[in-house]
């Protein structure tokens, strides 16, 4: 009575149902996120229009402009120092942000993970609140601390340590501080999620086999926490590289990052093809970072089964 085809038919019906169910999510993402990215790619090869937008005439200038600039008079190409320095600054600031959040975030996550069950929830809540809080407001809060009339300068002057306020706002240091501040929870949460699963019997075994606390940290805990550390680093690095709000508030008009440079091309610059080419370049850097992540964590997870 049992037809041999029944199971396959059942399965293909199941898969068809699953496609139908995921259709709305796929459509909205395609329409309002993924699809437009392809238009950006197209625009990067067109000619800028006089009032923004583009003319439908192909031109390589958008891409040339990413790193080079054309002399107005001699038409010769030379390295665009301004762009190069913005690229370098963006990458360095993002790496520095990742490193600092890693140095502070790992011990913090470890601290939360080793609290007793009851208080752990509270610590976790304390780290989750900033994560959910508006990034703009948190940047604004940092601004009020480090500006010339801010808390730090006021206190230092009150105690007579300095006579005039130290200029902290509108520096690279301000951007770094702000980004570390706003992205720290993004580091702590994935690292915590990983450390929470850490089997402390392994640590006990290491101590039993004569390891010192430091060696336990470097030989047992950190290697086991590596997927979390990498995930956290990626989660911090990607938004840091494309940061727009934090550098534009704390860096002022001079200390631009890539995000601000892109915005400039769509605003005052009125050079949409250049802005598009810069966007694609930013995405390429992010893709490389993601590939490194997939390589590392992907293979790691496979090894651990």
């Amino acid at each position: 009575m049992t037809q041999p085809g029944t199971i396959e038919a059942e399965r293909s019906r199941d898969i068809r149902k699953r496609w139908l169910l995921s259709l709305p999510a796929l459509l909205i993402v395609l329409l309002a996120a993924t699809g437009p990215l392809l238009i950006v790619l197209l625009y990067s090869f067109l000619t800028p229009g006089p009032y923004g937008d583009v003319l439908w005439k192909p031109s390589p200038d958008g891409w040339i402009g990413v790193f080079l600039e054309r002399d107005i008079f001699t038409e010769t190409l030379s390295l665009a120092d301004a762009h190069v320095s913005i690229f370098v600054r963006s990458v360095l600031l993002s790496l520095a942000t990742t490193l600092v959040t890693l140095l502070f975030g790992f011990p913090t996550a470890y601290f939360i993970a080793t609290r007793p069950e009851r208080t752990r929830e509270l610590w976790l809540l304390l780290i989750t609140i900033p994560f959910w809080t508006n990034l703009l407001i948190r940047t604004f809060a940092v601004l009020q601390i480090i500006r010339n009339e801010g808390l730090i300068n006021t206190l230092l002057m009150k105690f007579g340590l300095i006579e005039r306020p130290i200029q902290m706002l509108f520096t690279d240091g301000a951007i770094l501080t702000g980004m570390v501040y706003v992205y720290l929870p993004l580091m702590v949460l994935p690292v915590y999620a990983n450390l929470e699963k850490l089997d402390f019997r392994l640590v006990e075994a290491a101590y039993d086999l004569y390891a010192t606390p430091f060696r336990v940290l470097t030989k047992i805990i950190i290697p086991l926490a590596k997927p979390g550390l990498i995930a956290g680093s990626i989660l911090v690095f990607i938004p840091a590289l494309g940061a727009y709000v934090t550098p534009s508030i704390l860096g002022g008009g001079k200390n631009l990052m890539l995000g601000n440079l892109i915005e400039l091309q769509f605003g005052q610059g009125r050079n949409w093809p250049l802005g598009s080419a810069l966007s694609i370049t930013l995405m390429l850097i992010v893709t490389v970072a993601l590939l490194v992540y997939v390589r590392n964590v992907g293979s790691q997870e496979k090894r651990h089964g």
Binding site: M1, T2, Q3, P4, T6, I7, E10
Partner: peptide, 17 residues
């Protein structure tokens, strides 16, 4: 699960599928 072949009889009826 459903049998690849054969019958499961309950009350004189094949309930395999």
């Amino acid at each position: 699960e459903f049998p690849t072949s054969g019958e499961i009889i309950l009350n004189g009826e094949d309930i395999g599928t």
